[in-house]
Write a protein that binds this DNA or RNA. Structure first.
Lengths: 323, 323
DNA sequence: TTGTAAGCGTTATCAC
DNA sequence: GTGATAACGCTTACAA
């Protein structure tokens, strides 16, 4: 019965098993063949010593890797409020997890300089978040940016915001719409691209306001807009959450969608509380996440990686109709 | 001009600055006083060598800490689909971030054995997630469990599910309700406690089904229930997401809430797409997150930590009325 | 298949 | 206030 002693190390296990340190290491890692007999002896010794496997910290230093990838998402609460964020996060986590890597959430406020990160993913985040950017580049940490403006030395994964928006605009034009209003996102790379796509078809589209992809904010903007007796026949939103909020507000005022007003969104997420299907641009959220994760993995391996541009799909629902 | 050389270490910086390794270390960490002059010399040398600060991996090994806390949340996509999850995650992240620690998302599927974690938080997750539990205990990693069944050697943070549900039940009883139906969560610690609280007042409450806190699933269950011509005057749900779905379905069928049916929820999250305020049990999500994070920090420091039980508040809205 | 030895880049202890 | 030196616990050439 000894006192509270330090936890056993691989060296202790090796001693107990009567083998060398390197052999014990191999018994655990399997990086080189070890005879069955000795492996059993090592594992047995580990078991009886209460050794739970190689210390990750030591391994990390030795291998120069932490096995952790950071993901910057701006403010957590707002970042995940939009359901479009989740399938992508899920896919990222799945691919990284399968490769044995963990995913670390990075808030805007935090100081990440001391965190052991093998790569960092920037997911649709605003200017503030870019602050730490240069520091990571200086540390030589691979960066993967989702839906951000291009930047040298970084891998980019994006969707065809502009093409998708233009396709939607053509659909609306075909339906006879000519007076188009837009509810945009706050200034960002996606916002600019999506607006540009819309203007490819409707150069005179009127922006009625900008807000986050948040139900409350969008409904308020819609309410103000309805109060102004607008003459547009369609309101194009830059997210489904916004579009759903507009539909709710229209209904609240006794307006019919799409009878009195057509409404369109962006993303292609479920809105089960609406009894109509939004017309929207569906983006491949899972594919996007997988592309991001794969890019991060490749960059960690030191491989060169091509930027990725994913296609989107116009999904015509029942929230748009003839002008 | 040399070829692609290894990145500079603290030893290189010390040499360049003409000081010892230990002094250079202190210049960065500030753990002991260093004269201003030498500090400047060290930082200058670092600057010109392109040294970006002490290698986190090395520091981690030396200090026996990774600066990373894991949080197990089951399936990511489902875990964050309920808006109640976010304010808590936000609070956890904020407190840990302020202490310089990162938060790592742990999916159910992944193998976390090789991740360098200083502590692990278990957030309302099912049995499956508990699989890795014993491994962490064996590794001596502090565990903090949110809304889970107690388990030796672990710190618990919970809310008063039972008391809250009982308070709601009394409110309903006061309104004259006697025939009570329940839409529960899938079997879990919170589910059992909340149901127990309800039965403290209504022992004969009828469970009409169980599902995740997901709009689509709850609406489907509600739909089936309405089809069965129920005679209950109130439907108590175990989350606001469920309750909102029930309200939507009731409306869709031309039923008035609370005229034809009273509906109650749990959590106290905003449901802006409803034009009524849910009667619900509001839980202090931010407080819960902060308590969890503080417990994790204390456990990492080796301190003893008391379990935490947070109070909840009955918030009477317009979704409940006289029987 | 197994053993020897050299680091990985820090921080902490101790003396000066 | 500064400097030498010993860990931290492991992986991986290289040798046997």
């Amino acid at each position: 019965m000894s006192g509270p002693t330090r936890s056993p190390t691989l060296a202790d296990v090796a001693d107990a098993a009567g083998v060398s340190l390197s052999t014990a290491s191999l018994a655990f890692s399997g990086n080189k063949p070890v005879s069955d007999a000795t492996r059993q002896r090592v594992l047995g010794a580990a078991e009886s010593l209460g050794y739970t496997g190689p210390n990750p910290l030591a391994r990390n230093l030795r291998q120069g890797r932490s096995g952790v990838v950071g993901i910057a998402v701006g403010q957590l609460s707002t970042a995940f409020r939009d359901p479009a964020a989740l399938p992508m996060l899920d896919a990222v986590s799945e691919v990284l997890g399968a490769a044995g890597l963990g995913l670390l959430l990075m808030g805007d406020e935090d100081d990440h300089a001391r965190l052991p990160l093998d790569a960092v993913i920037y997911d649709i985040c605003g200017r503030e978040t870019w602050a730490a950017y240069d520091a990571f580049v200086a540390r030589g940490i691979p960066l993967v940016v989702v839906e951000g403006p291009t930047w040298p030395g970084t891998t980019f994964v994006d969707i065809d915001h502009r093409g998708g928006s233009a396709a939607l605009a053509r659909h609306l034009h075909d339906l006879g719409h000519r007076r188009v209003a837009v509810l945009t996102l706050e200034p960002s790379h996606p916002q600019r691209q999506r607006e540009a796509g819309l203007r490819d078809v409707f150069p005179d589209a009127v922006v009625i306001g900008a807000c986050a992809s948040d139900h409350g904010a969008a409904q308020q903007l819609a309410s103000d807009w309805f109060d102004s007796s607008p003459d547009a026949t369609v309101l194009v939103c830059q997210s489904d959450v916004q579009a759903a909020a507009v539909v709710v507000e229209a209904r609240r005022r006794g307006l019919s969608v799409p009878g009195d007003l057509s409404v369109a969104g962006f993303d292609g997420v479920p809105t089960p509380w609406l009894d109509l299907e939004l017309t929207t641009i569906a983006q491949p959220l899972g594919d996007k996440g997988r592309a991001v994760a794969r890019a991060a993995l490749a960059r960690i391996e030191g491989d060169d990686v091509e930027d990725v541009l994913l296609p989107v799909t116009l999904r015509v629902g029942s929230s748009t109709g003839p002008a």
